[in-house]
Each structure stands twice: as C-alpha cells, then as structure tokens.
Design a protein around this nucleic acid. Structure first.
Lengths: 333, 333
DNA sequence: CTGTTAGCGCGTTCAT
DNA sequence: ATGAACGCGCTAACAG
C-alpha cells in the first residue's frame, strides 16, 4: 500500500493550512472560492482519500448504524436489510452489516465488532443475545430490535405477534372446512417456533379439534425439511387436507412433495406458508401465506434510530402479520 | 453516549502501564499471569470496549475486506456474499459490505466509503465502475472482480462465459427438437444482457434457424417481466414450444404465466432459466437452468484476496456456467 | 475565513 | 515482561 496522502500534503500543495484543507474537504466550510478551488484541485491531483479511522477517532463516533442479522442469506432478513437500506438512504449514516456467521478468531463476535466501530445506532434483527447486554447497550446508543420482543426493552422492539398470526392462518383453514391440518414447525432453537405452534394449537382447540401429534412435523425452516415432512406424511398414509408450513421456504418444499405425490393444490390439499417471500406470489399456484412486513419493519427501524439520534423520542409502531390469501388454499374436499 | 473506557483507565485500575494493558488486551503479549489477570479483570469490570477507529488509525490499516455489490437484495449476490463470508470465516478479516444503493449525501459513494475505511482488500461484484479506477486501486490493494471481466485487470476477474452458457442452454433446447424458442432478455444496462442474447443467437444460427424478433422479449430480470412477456406472447397468439429466460426470477414469472394460460410444463412448453437460485429446484416442476457458481466465486474471491494479502500470487480459477437439467424441459411436442 | 494548538485511543518504537 | 514517549490523520477548540 502506497503511503497515505494526508490533509497536510494537500494543504502544502494548495498553500493553505491543514485545518483549512480539512474543513473544505469535509464540507464543514466553504472557504473562499479561490482557496476552495486550490484545495480541491490539490486533492484531486494527489488522489486524496479520506481516512475514516482518523475522522471517527477524532470525532469520537462514526456515521454508521450497525445492523446485526443471524444470516445474511435468509430471504426474510434480506427484506429487513432492504428496508433499512432504504430508511438510511437519504441520511448521512450508512449501515454496517454484521452477521452472526463471523467468528473472527475467538470471542470477538459481530456485536463487539460493531460496537468497536462506535456505531451511532444499532438495529438487531432476531438473534438471541443476552437481554441484559442489549439493555445495557440501549442505555448508551439508540437500539432497536426487529422480530423479537425482549423483556427489558419492550419499547424498543418491532415485531408482529407470531402466535396471533399463526392462529389466524390456522383459523382460516379451519373455516374452510379443514379438520386435519398438518403443521410443519421450525427448529426448536428459533425463538418464534413456539409462538407459532401455540397459535396453531389455539385455533384447533378453539374449534374443538384435538391436536394430532402425527400431524405436527419437525422442520428447520429450510425447503428440504418441508419436502421431507410431507413425503413422510404421504408415505405413512396419514390423512390430511391442508398443510400449514411455519415459513415459506418449507412451504416450497412441501409444494414439491405434494406435486410428486400427485396431490393437487388446492383441490386435494390446501397449502399455507408464513413470511410472504417475494417469490411466493409466483409459486404454482400462488401461495397463501402470512405476510410479515419485513421491509416495513426495517424501514421503520432505520427511521427510528435516526430519529432517536436526533434527540427525538421514538415509539415503535405496531406491526401485524397479515394473511394473504392466494390460490394455494381452498375449501376442504 | 457515556464516556469511553480507554486502556488508560483500565491500566490505572489494574495498576499497570497503559502499554502493558494494551498489549494484553490485544493479545499481542501474554504478560505475567498475575498482571494478565489484573488487566482482564479490570477490563471486564469497567466494561472495556476496544475502539477500532483508534486501532485502525494507529495500525494504518483495518482488518476488513471491502465487498461491493450493486444490490444486496439480489439473490445471486446473496450467493456470492455467502461464499465470501465462508471464505473469510476463519481469517482475522471480516467483510465490510457496500451497496451501490447508498448515496450518503453527495458524491461519496460506497467505494469511497470502503476505501476510506482502509480495507485490506476489495471484492467488487459486477458493478460498472470506471475500469481505470479499478486498475488504480488494484495497484494499491488486493482487488478481485466477480461476474465481469474488465480489460486492464483480466487476471483479477472471476466470471463465467455468459455467451457460452446461454449458447449451451439454447443448444440443449434445439437438440430437444424445439424450433420456436422464446427468449426473455435482461435490461439493456446490465452488462451480461448482450452476451447471453448473443449465445442464444449463435445457437440458433448454428442450427440453421433464423432468429425471430417476435420471440425475443424484453425483460428486466424481475419476476413480473417474465410473467408479462409470456402473457403477451400468448395473447398475441405467437407460437412457441420453449421459453429461455435469461435469469431464474423471470423464469418464475414465466412459469406462472404459463400456468395461468393452461400451458403444461414441460409437456407443451419447455422452460429454462439462468442462475440456479436456491428455490429453482423447488419450482413446479423443478427448473432446468444454467447454474452460475456464485457461492464458489465468492469463496474463491475471498480466499484469493487473503492469499494476495499474505504476499502470495493468486491466479483466479476458471468458472463455468453449468446446465442443470431438471423437469421443466423436455422433447418438443 | 483562516491558522495554531491540542488532543481522540491505540500501537509502536525505545528503554529498563 | 514492562514502562515512557511519540505518532497515526483528522477534528475541535481557540486565536487572529
């Protein structure tokens, strides 16, 4: 790496003092037309490149908002990221994305990395972190949580009620006449696996239906698990007229399994997912699913952090899971 | 933001000198067991948090690799990011992701941001940047390009031959007996729109078929454009027995349009995509497509940058688009 | 509007 | 193994 070009060199080159050069380059001051031109010219000539480390150190902060996601490849988080990106777009802040996948040697995890960068604010998307740690951070900088509701900072959380959303979806199927509704659950570790299953259970109980253990299938939120779950069901000859997958990815897998088993959707089996990924409306047939407003939550979180940064209070709006009825579901046969 | 806890405070707290504290905290020296314990304890007690800006400034570099993508929401780039993340996983470096969507006020774009952070290396994924700028950067730090081949730095590019891949896919359809193959192209601005169309054309010409302008549909790489393209085709009554969409997203849209038009896949119409997104194998029926090794390219790029960083030379391997035949394609009716 | 002087927090010589 | 002093490049007080 070639030696750095600092404001000192460009100051000398332009015949001004370092601070003048610095002020003009950082846009902190216009300067006299002549001075300004000289500085800018010198910067261009010497190919000057701002050193953000120095700027951040000097300022005691950085113009970035940390974003923590468990998995950068998960479509749902991609939606959130899109929203955040949009929300930050016109601000001076930019997102610093941390993924839980980064190990970085020992214990220095992604969170420490973001904090080490002295991010101006933090948006944490559904990732089991010690709640008191989050609480402590929230005292220091604007912190917003997406997806999960954590006790000590409830008023800093943007989330939908997963139990309620799953309840609505199940209720919808029941109202359609379905009595044997298979449920593909998420991995035990995911925090919303339980609430969604609870919602399913509540809807059944409310309708006077008994929860059939044989209809509750273990999934892991990946396509293949939805596929195998349905395959198993069919292989064992367990009857069912509907499948409620607790996320869209598994619904895709389930759809394929149904197809391969010669089961028509929705004529023979109704299929409902959860998330409403961008591709779900292009499934064959288009998937009925619970829409999670990931984009909106990301957008709101970004704006919220910005707002808090400007000293104003921010009260997260309520978000709701919305059942989007498309063509993969219909009357029970 | 509360006042920062610096190594000075923890040094005082531990009864040692600042430099000793710094050395132990950065793992640069073990220290005597007692000293070490005292420092670590003090750090924990005071809730010490490393200031990366200071560290980076002092070191004159940062332990990060800049990654530049045009769109963080595009599934193909997500694959690349996954590969990069994996490749960097066991190193001391972490990815600093820049998206072209960030404006950050004026001209300071994402590239300047990354450079301003003094990234150790740079991975640029398909984004039209002035080639001489890239060339200049490549002289300073390890730089690798994914997706595109740029003249002055050909030996720093990881890409597949789009023309050849599109040729193979078209050729495959022709060999299946298809004569009227609709082609859904990408947006004119995307750099691989032209080569893919060229490949389609070459395959036709080689087979003695004439390119029918009415079969070449304008798309924009989004699902909806594939949908509308096929809808139009059907509406106008233009005959075709196969659809080659120049990316998978448009193939999804095309699939839905075919479904709605009552055209069976692959019995009446064969469908082929390009990219092999994760969901493509779960399309109904599973999509025949050209697999682009995004993950592998990302992985290779990350390792390559790391290798260059360690002073070793790196010669990018060759990558190939691979036709993955699944069930959406078959003999011409 | 401009120049001067001090740091920001950490790494890195040198000593000891 | 430890301590003291200086410097990284920039911003932020002051002066003028």
């Amino acid at each position: 790496m070639a030696k750095q070009v600092t404001i000192y060199e460009i100051a000398k080159e332009a015949g001004v003092s370092p601070s003048t050069a610095a002020r003009i380059l950082s846009g902190r001051s216009q300067g006299r037309a002549k001075t300004r031109a000289a500085v800018l010219a010198a910067a261009k000539r010497l190919n000057y490149q701002l050193n953000l480390a120095a700027q951040n150190l000097s300022r005691g902060k950085s113009m970035s908002i940390g974003v923590l996601v468990p998995d950068i490849a998960d479509p749902f988080f991609v939606e959130i990221l899109r929203g955040i990106e949009k929300g930050l777009h016109d601000s001076a802040y930019f997102p610093l994305i941390g993924s839980m996948h980064w190990r970085l040697g020992e214990a220095r995890n992604a969170l420490d990395l973001l904090l080490g960068h002295r991010v101006g604010g933090l948006i944490v998307a559904t990732t089991h972190l010690p709640s008191e740690r989050l609480y402590r951070i929230a005292q220091e900088i604007p912190l917003l949580l997406i997806g999960e509701v954590v006790e000590p900072i409830q008023n800093r959380c943007l989330a939908i009620d997963n139990e309620e959303a799953a309840y609505q979806a199940t209720r919808y199927l029941i109202d359609l006449g379905h009595r044997r509704i298979a449920y593909i659950s998420g991995p035990p570790l995911h925090w919303h696996t339980a609430p969604r299953l609870d919602g399913y259970r509540r809807a059944l109980e409310e309708a006077g239906l008994e929860l059939q253990p044989e209809l509750v299938l273990a999934g892991n939120y990946e396509e293949s698990s939805g596929y195998h779950a349905v395959k198993e069901l069919v292989r064992k000859g367990i009857p069912f007229s509907a499948v409620f997958a607790s996320n869209d990815a598994m619904a895709y897998g389930a759809r394929l399994a149904l197809f391969e088993s010669g089961l028509a959707v929705p004529e023979q089996v109704s299929l409902v997912g959860f998330d409403d990924l961008p591709w779900s409306s292009y499934l064959i047939p288009p998937l009925t699913t619970v829409r999670q407003p990931g984009y909106e939550m990301g957008l709101s979180a970004a704006r919220g952090v910005l707002q808090m940064l400007s000293g104003q209070p921010f009260q997260p709006p309520r978000f709701y899971g919305e059942l989007v009825v498309r063509n993969s579901s219909g009357q029970a046969p």
